[in-house]
Simulated assay, not measured.
Amino acid sequence: MTDTVSEQLAPPGTADAVAADPPTTGPPATATTTTTTRRRVRRLAPGKRLPYARLLGPALLLVIWSVANVTGSLDPRTLPAPWTVVRTGAHLWSSGTLSTDVTESLWRAAQGFAIGLTVGVVLALLAGLSRIGEAVIDGTVQINRSVPTLGLIPLFILWLGIGETFKVAIIAIVVYVPIYLNLYSALSGIDHRFVELGEVLRLSRWQFIRQIVIPGALPGFFVGLRLGVTGSWLSLVVLEQINATNGLGYMMFQAQNYGQTDVIVLGLLIYGVFGFASDSVVRILERRVLSWRRSLNT
């Protein structure tokens, strides 16, 4: 590479002389090698983040769905066209039924998520920062994790009745488990050298938690938060089909009885949009809170 650069920069008539000279090993060659190495390292990264890149996949599915309906390769009775679903949603919204169902679903999910978030964080802190708390809490949570949460529905109906309370309780359980597991794992994974550093600096308990524990556990917490948000929507679609008089799940259950495929697809799309939007909000919050961290996602 050095010979080529020398030939290009040499004046006419000196090409033979340059070619006859042995390759040099001075600073220019070292700088060139360093630059080449840096370029190769940079190619290992995924590259610069594309704006709105996460919308590409859903947009592609929407295009395939539309083309399949237009060409007739997809039976509308099996899966209605996107514009049919949009018209159905506009009709239900103008009649006031869809807005009521959406509001009730959001309220149930928000209640269960708030309770699950609080319980998951408190239990993870107690188990991650105390050996006694770990002995009492972690084993119990692991047993709860092994039991299918939706299998608890009959028992919770007997305990709490068939109203709204048991629905919120089930959502809270679905939410708190991933938040606890990820936050507890992050707390347990903090390097013990940071603990020794805090002891050398004579940090108080609160200073140790604020300056070392919280920054070190935030990445794991946000992973659990994303899983918890998604879990709240997954459990809601099942719970709203049990003795409910409103909500998106109730709307879909009634549509099943009358063979309204477009209404069922509309409910699924709304659940998907809510899940995608809530996950995106958590991701944006994560990037802002963890702006000090350099990762492949930045």
Rank of each mutant, 00 (worst) to 15 (best):
D3C: 06
A277K: 02
V147C: 11
V175S: 02
V237N: 01
P219R: 11
A53Q: 13
G259E: 05
I157K: 08
S291L: 07
A135L: 11
W159V: 14
G128E: 08
D279L: 12
T14C: 09
L98V: 01
N243R: 13
N257M: 13
T37Y: 02
R293H: 13
P80W: 07
L79K: 06
F166H: 04
W93L: 14
G112E: 03
G72T: 12
G189Q: 10
Q260T: 08
A110Q: 02
V141Y: 00
T71R: 11
R202A: 14
V174G: 14
P11S: 07
G139K: 09
G231L: 06
T118A: 15
S6A: 15
F166D: 04
T25V: 09
G128M: 08
A17N: 08
W83S: 14
A114I: 05
A217N: 06
L227F: 15
A17V: 09
F208V: 01
A68E: 13
P154Y: 12
L181N: 12
L236S: 00
F253C: 00
R43S: 08
V265Y: 10
V136M: 14
G189M: 09
G139Y: 09
E196Q: 09
T118F: 13
V175Q: 03
P27A: 11
R42C: 01
G89Q: 05
V174R: 03
D21W: 10
L285P: 02
Y271I: 03
S66W: 15
A15D: 08
I157H: 10
T103D: 02
G247P: 02
V195T: 13
G247F: 00
H91D: 15
A31V: 12
W107A: 07
V5E: 15
S280L: 11
T149Y: 11
V238H: 03
G198P: 01
V5D: 15
G13K: 04
A29P: 01
L60R: 04
L55W: 14
G198S: 04
R77H: 13
L160I: 08
R210G: 04
A114T: 14
F276K: 05
W206S: 10
S94G: 05
P58A: 02
D16E: 13
G112V: 04
V263S: 10
L158H: 07
R283N: 02
F253T: 08
A20I: 11
T32P: 01
L60P: 03
Q254C: 01
L296G: 03
L60N: 05
S278G: 03
I212K: 01
R293E: 10
I264F: 12
T78E: 14
V168I: 15
A17L: 14
E104G: 04
R294A: 06
F156M: 12
A90Q: 12
I64A: 15
A15T: 10
D75N: 15
I162M: 09
N257Y: 14
I137F: 09
L125E: 02
G96I: 07
V18M: 09
